[in-house]
């Protein structure tokens, strides 16, 4: 019955996926081991991006965090958003960050340390925010929506929605991106104009 290459299973990946979904339905494994692994990648990358001393290492860790988030989007059956995340963040924003680090010689370690003088206050504020958010999420648990049906959304439907219901936001985002790109170039080239005069 099963293919010998696949250890007797017809479609090992599909079987594994079904096992995860079934165990998620039973509440035994709340969201599945894949979710924990991907979350660990995303959170670990974010922690490394914030904590590492060398800015180039920070940019690399940030890319790992973005990749983990894209995998979380794929795990949530949002394929389009996941691949948009990979294209925009892993492809473009990470490269922009690396360019900015190299143009500002940010890889030199500062003498007075990488954390500001008031880092205790900042850490306390972040911890308080996480405590409040986590408490609210855990309290709201029973009232959160829980649709088990997998949404079957095609790129065709997303395109129809972008060109129909969401056409005005799409145009505004197009204008915003054009203005932001021109603005970024003008702001970054300002010094050159000053030397010409």
């Amino acid at each position: 019955m099963g293919h010998p290459l696949y250890f007797g299973y017809e479609h090992p990946w599909r079987e594994f996926d079904r096992f995860l979904r079934e165990s998620a339905g039973k509440g035994r494994l709340a969201v599945g081991i894949v979710f924990y692994l991907i979350s660990a990648v995303a959170v670990g990358g974010a922690l490394a991006a914030v904590l590492l001393k060398n800015l180039v290492h920070c940019a690399l860790a940030l890319t790992v965090a973005f990749l983990g988030l894209a995998l979380l989007f794929l795990q949530l059956d949002a394929q389009f958003a996941g691949f948009a995340q990979i294209l925009v963040y892993v492809g473009a924003v990470a490269i922009l960050v690396v360019f900015a680090i190299l143009l500002t010689r940010g890889s030199d370690l500062p003498k007075e340390g990488v954390f500001s003088k008031s880092w205790v206050v900042g850490l306390a504020i972040a911890a308080a925010v996480f405590a409040v958010l986590g408490w609210v999420v855990l309290q709201a648990g029973p009232w959160l929506p829980n649709e088990t049906a997998v949404p079957a959304v095609t790129v065709n439907q997303i395109g129809q929605a972008l060109m129909g219901r969401y056409v005005l936001p799409l145009e505004i985002v197009a204008v915003l991106l054009t203005a932001a790109l021109l603005g970024a170039v003008i702001v970054a080239m300002h010094e050159k104009e000053g030397t010409k005069q």
Partner: peptide
């Protein structure tokens, strides 16, 4: 499962906030 995703998002938000507030 939504609770798990919301907790991960809260953790990432807190990490980002800590980074924005404490780094030079």
């Amino acid at each position: 499962p939504l609770t798990g995703y919301l907790l991960v998002a809260a953790l990432l938000f807190a990490i980002g906030l800590a980074g924005a507030l404490t780094r030079r």
